[in-house]
């Protein structure tokens, strides 16, 4: 038996969190590092936010409504909003990812065994911050489109190489290619529209898994910068999360 990751949603979570850590653009710089920093959605996102979004497989009608709560870069909570999925959460805390469901009293840690196809674990994806974790190895600009070839600073990153394609003039990302060490692209993220381009909040993005040949569409519905209580991320005490459900 191969280690088979749960199919769509876990996969999509990666995309969601990769994409959803959007926020206001930083100051515009001319050099590639500045360009990277200016287009880093993760870094640009507000420290505390609530995000409503939908995830679906491209070409299929059904979409799963989700809610993402974030507090700092160590705490994130994905809440599933579909009636059948009520009470389920994915919680990210201190580098660990947990799954919570009404049938289980305790959270289940989704460890390395829940590797995604293409070799990336959820852990790695949830922490993907380009400006923090990558350095620019090469860059090229042609007709206003800058291509930044990024290399992971820390060893053991899920994607040792990232090709980051940005609209240099408007300072917004166009496309990302997440690649293995040898340069083989494993996944692409395509920014299709913007909810708030100025604050680097995407409207719709398509995340393609080149290994499994699946393309997910993530649509951002609402981004709300607001205080997020730490109790939401408490592993042992579900009361704050329960309160969300009862709201």
């Amino acid at each position: 038996m191969s280690e088979r990751a749960p199919r769509l949603p876990v996969w999509s979570l990666a995309a969601v969190v990769t994409a959803a850590t959007a926020g206001a653009a930083g100051g515009a710089g001319a050099d590639p590092a500045a360009l990277l920093a200016a287009t880093d959605l993760f870094a640009a996102a507000p420290a505390e936010l609530r995000l409503a979004l939908e995830v679906g497989v491209e070409g299929r009608g059904e979409r799963s409504p989700l809610e993402l709560w974030r507090r700092g870069d160590q705490l994130a909570l994905v809440r599933f909003l579909a009636p059948a999925e009520r009470g389920k959460f994915v919680l990210r805390r201190d580098g660990e990812t947990w799954f919570l469901a009404p049938g289980a009293r305790r959270p289940v840690r989704m460890g390395g065994s829940f590797r995604l196809h293409g070799g990336a674990a959820l852990d790695d994806l949830l922490g993907l911050s380009l400006a923090r974790d990558y350095r620019v190895a090469a860059h090229e600009e042609r007709r206003g489109v800058a291509t930044l070839d990024l290399e992971a600073v820390a060893p053991g990153a899920a994607y040792p190489r990232v090709r980051w394609v940005v609209d240099a003039a408007r300072r917004r990302p166009l496309r990302a290619e997440l690649a293995a060490r040898g340069g083989k692209a494993l996944r692409t993220v395509e920014f299709r529209s913007w909810l708030d381009a100025a604050r680097l909040i995407p409207g719709e993005l398509a995340v393609a898994d080149l290994v499994r040949r699946v393309k997910l569409v993530v649509r951002f519905l609402e981004v709300e910068a607001r205080p997020v209580p730490e109790a939401l991320f408490d592993l042992d005490d579900p009361s704050a999360r329960t309160a969300l459900e009862e709201r």
Binding site: P6, L8, P9, S64, K88, V90, A101, G103
Partner: peptide, 18 residues
């Protein structure tokens, strides 16, 4: 003892059960 099982269901959605 109680163990918790985590698996992906029909739609690919995860679920956990004690």
């Amino acid at each position: 003892d109680v163990v918790t099982l985590l698996a992906a269901g029909e739609s690919g959605m995860l679920n956990a059960l004690d």
